[in-house]
């Protein structure tokens, strides 16, 4: 069986008859030819396929295309008008050398866009925890974190030193009676 979907992708209407099991990532890649969105794992772990669905970051390998019907998707291809005019987040990734092989980059950039939407001036710790759903094997995250801080208008050199605390020793949260 196939189902008709209509999804606005990077501002343009798209439509196709698809198998219900078609993953949104493959809809973008194979139906629309938007190859920027990469698939790096099978277990919703790596985040390389992260796109915005109605403005929020999601892993497009774990969303059925049919579930995105009548919704709006933004991929990295939709952020910048052209390579010489980069959106502030990818521009910061370039300035801070926040990418090497580039495979995690589209997902990382989209996760960062979503993170900054929810928290426009994050601390280093908040950036690190906010990107916990995206794996990078090349950069050690050092320059990715700097790029996100820079994209938020903060000086990464200062923000970096601002929080000497140990990052993420597990979650511990609470409030006294």
């Amino acid at each position: 069986m196939t189902v008709k979907v209509e999804i606005t992708v990077n501002g343009e209407s798209t439509s196709a008859d698809v198998e219900p099991r078609l993953l949104l990532a493959h809809y973008l890649r194979d139906q629309l030819g938007l190859k920027g969105t990469n698939v790096g794992c099978d277990t919703t772990s790596c985040g390389a396929c992260t796109v915005l669905l109605d403005g929020e970051s999601v892993k497009s390998c774990t969303v059925l295309a049919v579930q995105a019907d009548q919704q709006s998707v933004t991929t990295m291809e939709g952020l910048s008008s052209d390579p010489e005019n980069l959106h502030p987040v990818p521009a910061a990734f370039r300035a801070e050398h926040g990418l090497q092989c580039g495979f995690c980059t589209p997902g990382m950039v989209m996760a960062a866009v979503s993170l900054l939407e929810e928290n426009p001036k994050p601390t280093e710790k908040q950036v690190r925890e906010g990107l916990e759903g995206n794996l990078c094997r090349c950069t050690g995250y050092h320059n990715i974190v700097r790029a996100v801080l820079a994209a938020s208008g903060q000086d990464p050199d200062k923000a970096e030193g601002s929080e000497p605390d140990v990052v993420a020793p597990g979650f511990s949260t609470g409030s006294g009676a």
């Binding site: 919703t44 985040g47 992260t50 669905l53 929020e56 970051s57 999601v58 892993k59 774990t62 969303v63 996760a111 979503s114 993170l115 929810e118 906010g130 916990e132 759903g133 995206n134 979650f171 949260t173």
Partner: peptide, 10 residues
């Protein structure tokens, strides 16, 4: 604390 931001969005 569930999953990651993308998981929590969904």
């Amino acid at each position: 604390t569930v999953g990651d931001p993308q998981v929590r969005h969904r």
